[in-house]
Amino acid sequence: MTDFGGKFFWYELMTSDPQAALAFYGDVLGWTSQPFGGERTDDPYHVVSGSAGAVGGVMAIPAEAKDCGMAPWWGGYMGSADVDADGQRLSAAGGKVMRPAEDIAGVGRFAVMADPGGALFMLLKGSSDEGMEAASPMAPGHVGWHELYAGDFDKDLAFYTGQFGWTTGDAMDMGEMGSYQLVSQTGGGDFQDMTGGIMPCPKEMPRPAWLFYFVVEDIDVAVEKVKAGGGTVLNGPTEVPGGGWIIQASDPQGAMFAAVGSKGEA
């Protein structure tokens, strides 16, 4: 069983049209899905799976959140041994509790947090001792890279490395866009250990946020499927160090996501 403490391990889409989103991502990322617990209700939580098992969930935006203006978005959950204590600890370190810890029946205890720059993430402690196994690197349909558009680059970098034990790799100079700092959630320092990057929030982004890169087998095929499914390719394909290719995109409901893969290997 993998220890997910301080690491992203579950990804959740809140959307205005769950069924349409499931169809879109099923085609683009090859996901399968089923209602949580196998129960079909009028508004179920759908668990989505990639090539190596469950990835996360898709649900409708709650009515109260929709009334407050919430738009479709992808969020990430980090493992926590004690959600209440971690919320207090992270608040003292410059973060903020956006939604206090509460229980989800049959799932566990969670809280919504913001880092010092304002990007949201969630903490989760499962209600069962049974855990997930981490997917192998670059498993199709799973998250292969985590990218933070930081509202406060220096404070956010110190926050994640200091509070979660993440380590840093090389930093790449992006000119006027600032520095792109490679980070590892697993504690390694070599390039192959890196699991994401932190960069200053670009002016094109409406707010600081985490962006998750889902693995596809062929980036060009993914581009065509995004377009055919009613999504929008915002940037790319762009080659990145290590020989991979990436795109940033939005789904038909407007949630931003990204994909990483190879070229010509479908």
Rank of each mutant, 00 (worst) to 15 (best):
D27F: 10
R40G: 14
K125W: 04
F8Q: 00
G87W: 04
M194G: 01
V216F: 08
M194S: 07
V226T: 13
E64S: 10
Y11I: 00
K125E: 02
M172D: 12
G165V: 10
S262E: 15
L123W: 01
E265N: 14
G188E: 01
D152A: 13
M113S: 02
A63T: 09
R40D: 12
E39W: 13
A228E: 06
F257P: 02
G197I: 08
H46Y: 11
R207M: 15
F110P: 02
G79V: 03
R40E: 14
F191M: 00
M132R: 11
V221T: 01
L13V: 08
D251G: 08
D42F: 13
K96Y: 11
Q34D: 12
S184K: 03
F164P: 06
V55G: 05
A209Q: 01
E147C: 02
D103H: 13
G229S: 09
M70L: 12
E102M: 15
A255V: 03
G75F: 06
D86S: 12
T15P: 03
A171K: 14
V107A: 06
I246A: 11
P100A: 10
D17S: 04
G38L: 04
A93Q: 07
A23S: 06
P100K: 00
D115W: 00
A105L: 13
P137Q: 06
